[in-house]
Amino acid sequence: MSAQPAAAGSSPAHGRRFLAAWIVLSAILTPVVAFFLGPAIPPGNGSVEATGQVFDNEVLVAVSTPVCVFVVLFLGYALVSFRSRTAEIVDGPPLRGDMRIQIAWMIVTGATVLGLAAFGTYELLQGGAGGGQGPNAAFLPAGHNHALDVQVIGQQWEFTYRYPTFGGLETPQLVLPANTLIRLHVTSLDAVHSFWAYQLGVKADANPGTDNVVYVQTKGARSFDIRCAELCGLWHGYMFDTGQVVDQGRFTAWAKQQQTYFTPVARYLPPYATTYMPDPQRRAG
């Protein structure tokens, strides 16, 4: 069965050689990934939040690169250098651990993890990073008192939008003013939906009976894709739309025009509220 252990011929330089190769490769690959791949990672620069997310992703790919290089290089090195070259089974040296390596590993992984968590928290504190924050938003951006309120109502299977500053106007299109801080109130009339404005870096679940607040600071005029990101029933796959960010003047004109257009139906709408209470269990589809 187990024969004599292999002659301890394997040179002790293996460890140093591997570490040198790891450092060199990481030093080359990390900047390449961070500065070439990183900026290409979505969701782009549609809003301040989206730009923040791109930066976040850049940092994460940069930190991941040395880790990835370490494991793949280690596997490659070990498989080439330590493959058994004999027909009969020979045992390796009985190494059962090394406290120095274990402690070094714990320190490095621990520091990386704590650093990432601190970085993520710092980014999150910048106004919530585009994620839904519930009725009492914990992380507020500067100037949140002057944000424009827009309500997003998820229902099977479309989003509609209400503008409380324009008399509770409800429209099937989302149009937002450029360079403005916007407070979206996301809620639902039936199942759980998730409002995903891709290029704006916004995602917030729409729960019935809940006012899910998310802040987004728009940049220049552009269009953006809206999709439902939470399975909400039969036509979930068709619950997509395109929204617009337009200049301030065009936005006001559009809102006025919509108000006039929807005047005949406005009186049938329930008054604007943060949540609405239909029966979410009515059977659909």
Binding site: P42, D56, L60, V71, W196
Partner: peptide
Amino acid sequence: FNFLIGGLSGVFLSDVPSDVTTHG
């Protein structure tokens, strides 16, 4: 190899700003 990729992508999902895009 697979678990490495799975674990590293998990870091993106655990980071709230990154998770906003990748969630769901």
